[in-house]
């Protein structure tokens, strides 16, 4: 991982230049608008829901956007012939995306702390967002490898949102009451994501939090393995195969 710092610095620099940080800022302002115009004084519950959407869908999107920029400009070819490992390349990209999500956490937390009430631990929240965003950035890379165009990626992301995110959101706001469905949701990574985000406010047993955190860590390792496995095929394809 000798080249990881240089690759991460490059990734962050490009995220600034290609306005991905700016896009993250706009989304964060949008979430702040939602917090601002709600009548609730303690925004902790809503805060978790907003961060859930941000750390899942936006992570998928940011990861996809950075890869599509590299495809479009041919810079991916230049990276392919550098003395860097696939692991360095992929992990720098994923960590760069996590930084954008952390930017949102900081901005939202500052707003909520100054103007509303919030009973969530910042550090627990930041750690949870980092893990959820890391997992979903990898999901974004997998979806990108299976998407020919950016529109395909958006469609795949929407499928993921409808199948795996929406049920968890509906459960969280009390729309889903069926116990069997609720229990089934525990099998999907978005439920684990929601649980560890909610845990930053306390009220969830530590073993349960660690179980779900472990689920996402093991899931991330599995996704990382898949991304690295698919990377060569994707790279060869992008170089004209």
């Amino acid at each position: 991982m000798r080249n990881f710092p240089a690759l991460l610095a490059g990734e962050l620099q490009r995220m600034v230049k290609y306005s991905i940080f700016a896009a993250g800022l706009v989304v964060a302002l949008l979430w702040i608008g939602v917090l601002h115009f709600t009548d609730i004084e303690d925004v902790s519950g809503l805060f978790v829901l907003l961060l859930f959407v941000d750390a899942t869908t936006m992570s998928i999107l940011y990861a996809g956007v950075t890869v599509f920029f590299e495809k479009q400009e041919g810079s991916l070819k230049s990276l392919l012939v550098c003395p860097i490992s696939r692991l360095e390349h992929v992990s720098s990209k994923v960590c760069g995306n996590v930084v954008v999500n952390l930017q949102t956490v900081v901005l939202l937390y500052l707003y909520a702390w100054y103007f509303k009430e919030i009973s969530l631990s910042f550090w627990a929240l930041a750690a949870a967002v980092a893990l959820v965003a890391f997992f979903h950035a990898l999901v974004g890379l997998v979806l990108t490898y299976y998407s020919e165009t950016f529109t395909d990626l958006l469609m795949n992301m929407m499928k993921y949102a409808f199948l795996l995110m929406l049920p968890v959101l509906l459960d969280e706001i009390g729309v889903i009451q069926n116990a069997l469905v609720q229990n089934l949701l525990y099998a999907i990574p978005t439920r684990a994501s929601m649980t560890i985000l909610t845990a930053s406010g306390g009220g969830i047993d530590a073993p349960e939090v660690w179980l779900f955190a472990g689920y996402l860590i093991v899931g991330s390792a599995g996704l990382l393995w898949l991304v690295l496995k698919k990377f060569d095929k994707f790279a060869a394809k992008e170089s004209g195969v």
């Binding site: 490009r14 230049k17 290609y18 920029f69 400009e73 041919g74 810079s75 070819k77 230049s78």
Partner: peptide
Amino acid sequence: FEMPVHFSK
């Protein structure tokens, strides 16, 4: 490379 391979921004 024959084609441009740089980060354009």
